[in-house]
Design a binder for these strands. Structure first.
Length: 567
RNA sequence: CGGGGCGUAGCGUAGUCUGGUUAGCGCGCCUGCUUUGGGAGCAGGAGUUCGUCGGUUCGAAUCCGGCCGCCCCGACCA
């Protein structure tokens, strides 16, 4: 393509709306324009990148026997009411009415649509397994779209769904996807981690996320050098050891005027935070729940939701504390409580002679021993923090920010049961299909690739996702010999199938170099006057900045060679 | 939804506190000449309902109120 004929609106200055590095780059390099919060236009360069990413995704999905469909984004409410998600998903779904006041929605994913086809068409185990996928727009009314293409209200997803006879077969389909995802992300040139994830409201058990470590991301992953890797919502850790007084005592009140927080009490008593029982009163579905954590730990509300089986809960108000505990917030504790469910983090089991609130103003208790002085249900409730101990190897864990680029779920029969997707098995019995669902966010692949390769001048994209493979830059189009050599080289590269962007604009060299750096195209082939007179052109590797002079007639061949061994 | 910030030409911004000529500057854009290896120079030129609606005032980008939009932090995130 000749740049002089293209629309690539690069900017010298970053629009004030952009904060995340990839967002700034996408705007400056002329890839995208925003039309509303979380809604973007993909201009020529972005679209070219997406076509390349899409092609990689297609090839790898097709390679595991997946069949491409295209589902409507516009769905009737009935489908979602049958699965129960019409009520379950809440405000994240865009809902609308047609002219006859019938409820419709825009799909957030397509379990319902795919399961609907499956239940209508699949009759026999002989038709299994099936893997169906699509590459299509998803709509989500996010509470807060952010960071350019990282969290949008409309985005492109590759989503696939597997249908199998039993759990073992489902695992085979799951593994196929897992492996295909690895190949996709490798081909896209991404450095990624695979972590155990919680499946959230999707239902199902086993789930993995594919994550690219990046400060621009919004998910937290917990990693250990031994290989342990989990989403923070799911991750667990061992408590670091604490010395407790092991002698026999009974709880004993002592005055602590005005000492409401763990921090206050650490200063007041001189004991370390881990010696305290942090007691949080919550109200879950109108019932009080007392949550106990080690003084130096934070509650993970996602884990709490899993334990409670609901996400309808909140911290109690001061009035509620008085009502349920008989004492004010700040002096809450588990001893001698009646009528309040007590959940404790597992790390409190076996501890002795700790300090807790006494449910009485300005009073705490010492010598509180879990199990002896109060009974609790023990669960994994704490949020893992940097430096916690790995449950597998005992080393320190690291918590890192990351971008979620893919997610695979084993759904089991959650949708086939609710929607009635069954087939006859070998024995002629009706059985629910075992499903999996698998998603890749296409914009996040591009965003992650940009973030991973960003530098002061722009970005250096992997060739597989860059909008072009090469930019051919002629430094001065007014010099006829140079221009003619450029035209000739351009035609030669095109005839060899090299994806080349020919910068034939009547601009000064500086402008062309700056623009080339911005776009992230992996190679720049420069035709400049001095070297041209010696029959030379130069190849610049955008990522390493390495410059190589080659004879003009060999340049196209050299680029082909490099394409075969990228990186 | 809670907290914070912002809205002036395509982009970046000054001016707003303390109301008063024709709303200023840089980049970009158009024309001409010069220039051509890291965002050129000179000359001329076009482009703004100052987010929007209302109020105060002789007079509003500026003061007051409503609304809309965008960004950030948090909540939230199938």
């Amino acid at each position: 393509m000749r740049w002089s004929k293209l629309f690539i609106p690069t900017l010298r200055e970053v629009p004030a709306e952009a904060e995340a590095p990839s967002h700034k780059l996408l705007l400056r390099a002329g890839y995208v324009r925003q039309i509303a919060s979380g809604i973007y236009v993909y201009l020529y360069l972005a679209q070219r990148s997406f076509l390349k990413i899409t092609r990689i995704v297609r090839e790898e999905m097709d390679a595991i026997g997946a069949q491409e469909f295209y589902m409507p984004a516009l769905n009737p409410a009935e489908l979602w009411q049958e699965s129960g998600r019409w009520d379950q998903v809440g405000q994240i779904m865009f809902r609308l009415k047609d002219r006859n006041q019938r409820d419709l929605c825009l799909g957030i994913t397509h379990e319902e649509g795919m399961t609907d086809i499956a239940r209508r068409e699949l009759r026999s185990y002989r038709q299994l397994p099936q893997i169906w996928y699509q590459i299509q727009e998803k709509f989500r009314d996010e509470p807060r779209p952010k960071s350019g293409l990282l969290r949008m209200r409309q985005f492109i997803m590759k989503d696939s769904y597997s249908f199998d006879l039993d759990p073992a077969a489902m695992e085979v389909s799951y593994k196929k996807h897992y492996d295909a995802y690895c190949r996709i992300f490798e081909r896209c040139g991404l450095k990624y981690k695979i972590v155990e994830a919680s499946s959230g409201a999707m239902g199902g058990k086993l789930s993995h996320e594919f994550m690219v470590l990046s400060d621009a991301g919004e998910d937290w992953v917990v990693l250990c050098s031994c290989g342990y890797a989990a989403n923070r919502e799911k991750a667990t850790s061992r408590p670091s050891p604490v010395e407790d007084d092991s002698s026999q005592h009974s709880p004993e009140p002592f005055p602590t005027p005005g000492q409401r927080t763990i921090e206050d009490m650490v200063k007041f008593t001189g004991e370390v935070a881990a010696r305290f029982i942090k007691s949080l009163l919550y109200v879950a579905e109108d019932k009080p729940v007392l949550l106990l954590l080690r003084g130096d730990r934070q509650l993970s509300e996602s884990k709490l939701a899993e334990v409670l089986g609901t996400d309808v809960f909140r911290p109690a108000t001061p009035e509620e504390a008085e009502r349920y505990l008989g004492g004010p917030l700040g002096f809450v504790g588990p001893v001698k409580l009646k009528g309040v469910r007590i959940l404790a983090e597992a790390g409190l089991e076996g501890r002795r002679n700790m300090i807790s609130g006494a449910n009485q103003k300005d009073t705490h208790l010492r010598y509180v021993t879990p199990g002896k002085d109060f009974k609790a249900e023990y669960h994994d409730l704490h949020e893992v923090v940097d430096g916690d101990i790995c449950i597998l190897c005992g080393l320190r864990l690291k918590v890192s920010k990351s971008i979620e680029i893919g997610h695979v779920f084993q759904l089991g029969t959650r949708y086939s049961d609710t929607m009635g997707a069954r087939v006859l098995d070998r024995a002629g019995k009706q059985v629910s299909l075992y499903m999996g669902s698998y998603g890749i966010g296409l914009e996040r692949i591009l965003t992650a690739a940009i973030e991973q390769n960003i530098d002061a001048d722009g970005t250096a994209l992997p060739a597989s996702v860059a909008p072009f493979e090469v930019i051919l830059t002629v430094t001065n189009m007014e010099i006829a010999a140079l221009r003619e050599a450029g035209d000739k080289l351009y035609e030669e590269m095109r005839s060899r199938g090299i994806d080349v962007l020919y910068d034939d604009r009547d601009e000064r060299p500086g402008v062309k170099f700056k623009d080339a750096d911005l776009t992230g195209v992996p190679y720049r082939l420069t035709l400049g006057r001095k070297k041209f007179e010696k029959g030379l052109t130069e190849i610049l590797d955008r990522s390493t900045r390495e410059m190589t002079d080659v004879r003009i007639e060999r340049a196209a061949g050299e680029l082909e060679t490099r394409r075969l061994r990228p990186g």
